[in-house]
Amino acid sequence: MADVLKPSSLIKRSFLYRIHEKAGGVFIEENGFAVPSNYGQSVREEITLAHQMGIADLSHVSRTGFKGWHAASWLEKKNCKFGLESNFSYLQSTGERILRLSPNEFAIVGKIVNDSDFITELNSSLHPETDEGVFIVPRSDTNCWLKVMGVNAPSMLAKVCAVDLRPQIFPDGAIAQTNIARLNCIVTRHDVGLATTYDILTDCASADYFWQALLDAMDEFSGGPVGVTAVYQLAGVG
């Protein structure tokens, strides 16, 4: 039997690793983090859960942000593709997504499956002394990244968020910067496979509180945590 991976054996640690341990998480290493592959259920069971009502911690996936009065033109020079509309997420041909948060601010989130060096390279290609008007925002630490999925996700979010996030109103790619359970959040509709899915970026220091608030809200839908293996399979379908 292979050694069991302990999250505290790695120096990069998710703010939620203790919660994952308590929930029976079986860990694999991703991006230097110990990530729950599953919570003791079969992948098939967790995929079923994800279709109904599931939550996953994707805080290990790379992400970054840029803002400033020249951020848009700089990103365009780096071959990033996005439209004029703010509060919308633009899928890149390489699989990353550019979240345009305002005319001058962007968050960039990596691919869930096969996360590449795209973001690391983008970060290191910024030269503050010469690239005027472009500033990095350390999104990978400011925010944790939670994925809420399943047909019941809109109803669950309606219990904690005052913005109308129903699929017919809030299309794939739409972004709302608002409060969820009284925390500032960036919520993006990013459907994965068949499941209606929302990516939520929120204060990493409040990750513990937020995770539990969402679990509480999804209790009536029999929702629960889903490991990354199930998420990868769903994302692969899409």
């Binding site: 703010s86 509060n87 305002s102 005052a162 913005v163 709302a176 910067q177 608002t178 409060n179």
Partner: peptide
Amino acid sequence: PLNGQRNAQEF
């Protein structure tokens, strides 16, 4: 102007 119509609570 940036985020559209929101409840006054967000402001």
